[in-house]
Design a protein around this nucleic acid. Structure first.
Lengths: 134, 134
DNA sequence: GTAGGAGCTGGAGTACGCTCCAGGTCAACC
DNA sequence: GGTTGACCTGGAGCGTACTCCAGCTCCTAC
């Protein structure tokens, strides 16, 4: 099964321009071409794109993804290096999650503060004499 | 207690240039000045900066922080709007954490795959006749 | 055989969030 | 009173990751 660039874009969630851009900078290997010279993406290509988008989602910089992509071509001999990249990246993602969780606490705290303001307002209104709220 | 821009930078973790930049774009109010015309940050200023850095850490775009900053000047009447911004932002941060957690699973999976390759290699080496490993 | 739509290339442009710089002021210390 | 160092301003420059464009080719459908 092969896919046009539009289909690959739809499946990967990337734009057509981004797909060509990734190819240009060496993030993805140039896909096969059909008889008319158009890109024809394989399932494997899409699998790699999906993994790339995961790495991007987690904030891996493109130059690191490029390094990883380069190592893939080196075969099993580069497995240890590739693993190292992923392990280090995983650590940084975990850190990031911890950081976000801490910020979520601050947001909760602030929002709670606004809730209290609202309650106080409602309270004041309720305590007014009947005529004043009319 | 007041702070020079260098001290404010050290405490907030932002650079001096970034502090001036934030002021220029209306993210922070112009701080007081000392007799020599230099910025003099108050505790309140630093508190706001700390909150801002939390929002930045969680990826809130600057224009949204600016909107929030603008609303602060509106007093208690804008509390509901400010709360809304925070509530919406909290939702997006939670989403982001969920997304990262999913990506962490993929990373775990991949790393586990590399572990298996390593074990297979070690195994092969162990199974070789004694002379071949010398 | 021609109109329309998808895709092609190389290169320029954009959004965001800083970061750096030149040229000047000011206060303090020697 | 001269040097040093922190700070000032307005404005230019930069890195990242796309995004857009002009001008062209190719296939399909009528």
């Amino acid at each position: 099964m092969n896919f046009s660039i539009a289909q690959a874009a739809a499946r990967s969630g990337l734009s057509i321009d981004t797909l060509r851009y990734y190819e240009r900078i060496g993030l993805v290997d140039p896909p096969a071409r059909d008889s008319g010279g158009r890109r024809s993406y394989s399932e494997d290509d899409l699998g790699w794109l999906e993994f790339l988008t995961r790495l991007r989602t987690t904030g891996m910089p493109i130059r690191m993804m490029r390094e990883y992509a380069r190592l893939r071509h080196g075969g099993v001999g580069t497995a240890a290096l590739r693993k190292q990249i992923l392990v280090e990246h995983r650590a940084s993602v975990r850190e990031r999650v911890a950081e976000l969780t801490k910020c979520l606490d601050v947001l909760d705290y602030k929002i709670d503060h606004y809730d209290q303001i609202e309650r106080k307002h409602a309270h004041l209104l309720n305590d007014l004499p009947q005529e004043a709220t009319a």
